[in-house]
Write a protein that binds this DNA or RNA. Structure first.
Lengths: 181, 181
DNA sequence: AATGGTTTGTTTGATAATCCACAGATCACG
DNA sequence: CGTGATCTGTGGATTATCAAACAAACCATT
């Protein structure tokens, strides 16, 4: 797997940055390909070289971050909830542009469910309802409950301008998760 | 004169930004072409596509700003000293990265003299030693005196973190110039 | 329903930038 | 000194991006 040409990386970065900026300024439906190409300082045709249309662009952007989060889980498999959450929250902070838009704008409601699916999927392996706290409880319900909780917390964090550092968010939410698994 | 390809503009911008950043971090002599290409996220060969070497790059960068300042003078020909200075100080602020480096680092002493030459050249047309304040004084001496004064002021402004807004700097220095022409 | 102004995809040929490899220069330092 | 390591210029082959143009789709307004 040879590494990709420097030019495509730069173009795609510029395009992704542009659409995120524009989404903070106007409704997704009102954003045109021309807007994006102008903001990204990239030829309009270049966008079509990489993406079908703006929906495809948004999809790919979402998919990328979902995958990145999944990989972070992989490398955090041995960690506690607090440590693992810290890795996530650092990633959230580093990409706050993306996440705050995705969690606050309604044109990207699609992202929420992808995000939730990922969280549930990752929590599932941690869950043991044969004994302990969750003995006798329904797996799906527990997972949906806790998944919604963590996503809600992240959303709240962004809506309020990230009032606490990632470290604190990770420890607090990690502590609550600890007593629920 | 068709407008230049978007790609060359982006490459050159990245390269110029990179060398300025590096000059704040280390001595000019210690900066390599590789450093610049890495920082600019541009292939090393691309730099040679536009510049002979790092000295040529610095020269072109300086020449560009000198020319820009000269053009600003052109369009400010009808203005008072205060108004004209305002245009300049706004340009200084917009490009504070460049000017503060050029006026504080010794590897760019060359810039000072280019800058001074420009100021003297522009002030010359304003000077009338046949009568008024400067009657009987030597033109060259007056020009060098005032030129050094304005450049020194700009240097002080940058060295002290631009403590006053461009507006104030322009009005104050403009007032002093008024009574010297 | 006709109109004129945008936006969209797609194509064209031209060209800037890429990667990689090279040989020579320069540097660091034992 | 000498010797490995890094940096420099340069070349060739390849690719991504470019500007410009086009017809079709999509609008808003009349």
């Amino acid at each position: 797997m040879k590494k990709t040409d420097r030019r495509v990386i730069k173009s795609q970065q510029a395009i992704k940055k542009a659409i995120l900026e524009l989404m903070t300024e106007k409704n997704f439906d009102d954003i045109t390909i021309m807007d994006i190409s102008e903001r990204a300082n990239v030829n309009r045709g270049t966008i079509y070289l990489h993406y079908m249309d703006k929906y495809d662009l948004l999809d790919k952007l979402i998919e990328e971050h979902i995958n990145e989060l999944r990989e972070l889980c992989q490398s955090a498999a041995e960690m506690t909830f607090k440590e693992g959450n810290y890795v996530w929250f650092e990633y959230f902070e580093k990409n706050h542009m993306f996440f705050s838009i995705m969690l606050t704008t309604k044109s990207a409601a699609h992202f929420r469910s992808r995000f939730l699916d990922l969280v549930v999927e990752e929590y599932k392996v941690e869950l043991d309802s044969s004994e302990g706290t969750n003995k006798g409880l329904n797996d799906d319900i527990v997972l949906q409950f806790l998944g919604a909780a963590i996503i809600g917390s992240v959303e709240w964090w962004f809506k309020n301008g990230m009032p606490y550092p990632p470290r604190v968010m990770a420890e607090q939410t990690g502590a609550i998760l600890d007593r629920n698994f």
